[in-house]
Design a protein around this nucleic acid. Sequence first.
DNA 1: CTTGGACTTGAGCAACTGATCAAGTTAAAA
DNA 2: TTTTAACTTGATCAGTTGCTCAAGTCCAAG
Lengths: 193, 193
Amino acid sequence: MPNIAKYDREEVIHKAMLLFWRQGYRATSTRDLQQAVNMRPGSIYAAFGSKEALYAETLQHYRQQMRHLLQQCLAKQPRKLDGLRAYFERVLFDPEIVGGDSICMLVKTLSELNEDQALLRETAEKALRQTELLFSEIVEQAQRLGELSDQLDPRRVARGLQVQFIGLRSYLKSTGDRDAVMQLLDDAFAPLR
Amino acid sequence: MPNIAKYDREEVIHKAMLLFWRQGYRATSTRDLQQAVNMRPGSIYAAFGSKEALYAETLQHYRQQMRHLLQQCLAKQPRKLDGLRAYFERVLFDPEIVGGDSICMLVKTLSELNEDQALLRETAEKALRQTELLFSEIVEQAQRLGELSDQLDPRRVARGLQVQFIGLRSYLKSTGDRDAVMQLLDDAFAPLR
DNA sequence: CTTGGACTTGAGCAACTGATCAAGTTAAAA
DNA sequence: TTTTAACTTGATCAGTTGCTCAAGTCCAAG
């Protein structure tokens, strides 16, 4: 029937994600978004409803992107733990991934938002829980493949890796010391060898 | 000569710190501050100059408070490493300390602020560097006292502890799972026994 | 007392915020 | 060609922001 949308939804969400990730939710004005995405306010609000709803979509996009990257890293390495480590290194150092910010977008979301944006907070919390679950499944697989002692509690190992990953990404943002981060990555995986 | 200030500067800074720490820099309006501190805008600006300058003072206050708590914990424990661990536990679980937020205020500052507030970012970065240095000095003392192997690099150990501490505080905020955090605290100190 | 200057007050400014909507544009369907 | 509805545009709104400043209040010194 009518006129067809001139923008590519996925591309718009990706660009919005990069801006939100770098600048944070509050520091990103709707006008910043309009420029980054090359759309006028009316179109954005017709397509996404609100700034908050758009942010929610960028969070989902972020999760999807990260999950995809992890699968990719696991596929390239014969050993599960090496795949996980490769994923950590990519997220920390690959400029194309860090395009947004060294700090995890989910952690940034939890850090800056209060109860007024409960929906966004819950989305981020849920995504972090799911990531932990994903890590623990990989640890279980590693155990089944004999890469890792059966004695270890997969959940506990997964939590430990996630905590260190979160810490490392924040630390890297603060110091920019890549060598130190690589050393600490060794230390994080050392108990698993 | 004239009228004397009716407010207690330290108390004002402390209240402002709690609010900034909880809500973040941008989410805290000058009107929020006025209410929390019970001062009118003119007085606040006469005393501190700007929102940014007041935030800078609360950062210094935060550092001082944390440094003081660490000394206190070290004084109570005969072994240095136990003192450090007690400090971690206090910061993570003591409601009086966590009054602001589970997440470290310095990390929150780095996370939410961009280049427009370069002064605040640098202040936070510097404070984190100094904390790492402090940790490494404590590790060195522990080594001299025979609590810890001389083989270990104090800087590396200090960095590792800081990274895990940052990660744990973020993780606790996200999940609220105190038991898991205690377990992970054990894991963080395990390589040092 | 009187006085003078440190301190307090709160109305209000200019800039910016997220969001709206009537008017305009587009292209597939009739 | 006409119709129609999805889509775009940008001026504009009401609310909020950080901050100012003239007017007022207070109290120690003279």
